[in-house]
């Protein structure tokens, strides 16, 4: 598979009044890459991600997602991406199958393929018994795995994950990352924010945001070399210590 660029930004900026949440960030993400988007709380990760998803209009700068412009072609972008937010985004009062059917349906999949694919999916996730139970009754870890699977159910080019493993136990997190790897292998580009530094190690490349700027961008191995650190935790501390915004 040729590695083409699926996300590219140039001086992308978002201001809220006097406050510059995201300050002229420039980066590229290649197709099939797992791109980690790191930074302390309030560094501007979520705002940047919302701009890339077409949820928030940039103040200035350029960005191109899956070949579409974030200013003029947000609806086309939305057709080609999946998104999983910090807030749990499935309907708790619908069953697993109903949630899958709904999200598959609004991405324009037909009923037949939704049905076939959802049977496959619940089997893969080991949720066959629970398929007709309300999502409300599932443990958090399962909910998160399900939410991720629903976000990539329509085979998007890129999936955006905003702190997908918050509050999930280490075993489930590991399983979650297995799902991410599987998705990347299928050619889905994964753009993920996280606070867990062990997860950062799983990424192909990571960027570190501090106070709205991207302060570092490279593979985990190169970053550790660059900062003379033995693990990603140290890299994070060195960069985030200089942050002026409240941690």
């Amino acid at each position: 598979m040729e590695t083409k660029t699926v996300i590219s930004t140039e001086n992308l900026t978002k201001r809220f009044g006097d406050f510059t949440a995201v300050n002229e960030i420039t980066f590229d993400v290649k197709s099939g890459e797992i791109f980690g988007f790191l930074g302390a709380n309030g560094a501007g990760k979520t705002t940047a991600m919302r701009m890339l998803c077409g949820l928030s209009n940039p103040t200035s700068g350029k960005a191109n997602i899956a070949g579409f412009d974030v200013y003029r072609q947000t609806e086309k972008i939305k057709r080609n991406i999946g998104y999983m937010s910090q807030k749990f985004s499935l309907y708790e009062d619908l069953t697993i199958l109903e949630n899958i059917r709904f999200y598959g349906g609004i991405y324009g999949m037909d009923r037949k393929s939704i049905k076939a694919k959802s049977v496959e999916l619940v089997e893969q996730l080991g949720l066959k018994e629970e398929a007709t139970k309300l999502v409300r009754s599932l443990p958090l870890g399962w909910k998160q795995k399900l939410a991720f699977s629903v976000a990539i159910f329509h085979e998007p080019k890129i999936v955006f994950l905003d702190e997908p493993t918050g509050g999930v136990d280490p075993v489930t997190r590991r399983q979650f990352w297995d799902l991410i790897y599987a998705a990347a292998e299928r050619g889905i580009t994964v753009f993920v924010t996280t606070h867990y530094m062990d997860e950062a190690e799983y990424c192909n490349r990571i960027s570190m945001m501090v106070d709205g700027y991207i302060k570092a961008l490279d593979s985990p191995a190169n970053l550790k070399k660059q900062f003379g650190a033995s693990n990603m935790d140290e890299v994070f501390y060195q960069l985030a210590r200089g942050a002026k915004r409240n941690l």
């Binding site: 077409g54 609806e75 939305k78 057709r79 937010s85 499935l90 309907y91 991405y107 324009g108």
Partner: peptide, 13 residues
Amino acid sequence: EIGTIEQINVTPI
């Protein structure tokens, strides 16, 4: 309130 609207907003609906 529960945040599902954001999920709806990133879909092509």
